[in-house]
């Protein structure tokens, strides 16, 4: 079987829609987990970038990616890449809005302070480095008095 560019595109479009197991409203493309779909020794390989090493959802994501490709009639392999490293910058703008509005989850901007997704307050108080998941830290907004989870950047994860 020759794999054409349009095959790769079709697989890419299908696996892009795989939902993240912990954010059922978001897919792996929006979260920047889907890196690429490539030809590898005459078969199709899907490259994924985990948000955090040792993420417990990886197995589930892999199964869902395999199933999405299979639904199109393709057997693919999944590779989890350690490079490039995932950063919150990889999250799409629309996904950032959903995270903020639906989940009360903030993202640290490249410059400036993290804003409370509810009231826009910019002096959040950090309460713990990790929260329910290893990829988010827990803060408190002293203005609207809500706990705010913030997606951790790779730099913060390394600390």
């Amino acid at each position: 079987m020759t794999i054409t560019k349009s095959t790769l595109n079709a697989v890419r479009s299908a696996v892009a829609l795989v939902k993240d197991p912990e954010y059922p409203d978001l897919n792996i493309q929006q979260l920047g987990i889907l890196e690429d779909v490539v030809i590898d020794a005459s078969s199709i390989r899907v490259d994924l970038v985990p948000t955090i090493l040792g993420c417990p959802a990886l197995d589930t994501i892999e199964q869902d990616v395999l199933a999405a490709a299979r639904a199109l009639g393709y057997e693919v392999t999944v590779r989890f890449c350690h490079s490039p490293a995932w950063t919150p910058d990889r999250i799409s703008d629309d996904a950032k809005k959903i995270l903020a509005h639906e989940y009360t989850i903030a993202i640290t901007p490249r410059t400036g302070n993290t804003e409370c997704p509810l009231c826009g307050h910019t002096s959040l108080e950090k309460r713990s480095d990790v929260g329910p998941t290893a990829c988010r830290s827990v803060h408190w907004c002293p203005n609207c008095r809500n706990p705010i989870e913030v997606v951790r950047s790779r730099k913060a994860q390394d600390q």
Binding site: R127, S128, P132, T133
Partner: peptide
């Protein structure tokens, strides 16, 4: 997850 939920 559970301890984190309790924390929040």
């Amino acid at each position: 997850d559970e301890i984190g939920h309790a924390h929040l």
